[in-house]
């Protein structure tokens, strides 16, 4: 029994990157903060590229706590949204380049823990989905700068998952 021939790597990468770009570029606020995403397979690392406008305390200088909180929230939402559409990207059922984007999860609450002050340089973050149900999800996010072991902020948040547009009829 022959398995189907795997797709060429360029085709797979192109499809995944196009989907990720479409998801991220649709949100103006992500561009405002200068956040980009690195992808390895389905794993995402968010990067908040350093810019002077992210500074909160110009004397130290240190990143604004609010910018850090926003960075963690963006990382959580995109990672959740990405995990939701991943199966459809793989099957080819979803084509995000046509402009029809899936709705992103909505934040219910976020609790941010500031462990050390953010240095004036790039910051990185990864989100771990602790649980993702039909309606609610719980996500934990870690952010670091030069050393992955030295976490400078972390957050736990709850999110409301986007409901299918036909919800209610199907009940």
């Amino acid at each position: 029994m022959a398995r189907p021939r795997p797709e060429p790597i360029q085709v797979v990468k192109q499809r995944r990157d196009a989907a990720l770009n479409a998801l991220v570029e649709a949100v103006p606020y992500i561009g405002f903060l200068g956040i980009t995403f690195d992808r390895r397979g389905d794993e995402l690392t968010a990067v908040m590229n350093y810019d002077e406008k992210l500074i909160g305390n110009p004397l130290l200088p240190a990143l604004h706590g609010g910018a850090t909180a926003a960075f963690l929230e963006v990382t959580a939402i995109i990672t959740l949204g990405w995990s939701q559409i991943w199966p459809q990207i793989e099957s080819g059922a979803l084509d995000l380049t046509t402009g029809k984007l899936p709705r992103l999860p909505k934040t219910i609450d976020m609790s941010v823990d500031y462990l050390r002050s953010g240095l004036p340089r790039d910051a990185y973050a990864r989100a771990k989905i602790s649980r993702s149900g039909r309606r609610y999800a719980s996500v934990h996010v870690l952010a670091w700068q030069d050393h992955h072991d030295k976490i400078f902020a972390q957050a736990t948040g709850h999110f409301l998952m986007p409901q299918p547009r036909t919800a209610g009829l199907a009940e």
Partner: peptide, 27 residues
């Protein structure tokens, strides 16, 4: 401001912008 939009379909501002503002105000 349009730069703060989190949901492009509705134009609602991102929760992160609200967080940043609340952090500043609390400080």
């Amino acid at each position: 401001s349009e730069a703060l939009i989190g949901d492009p379909e509705t134009g609602v501002i991102h929760g992160g912008a609200v967080s940043a503002m609340m952090d500043t105000c609390c400080g």
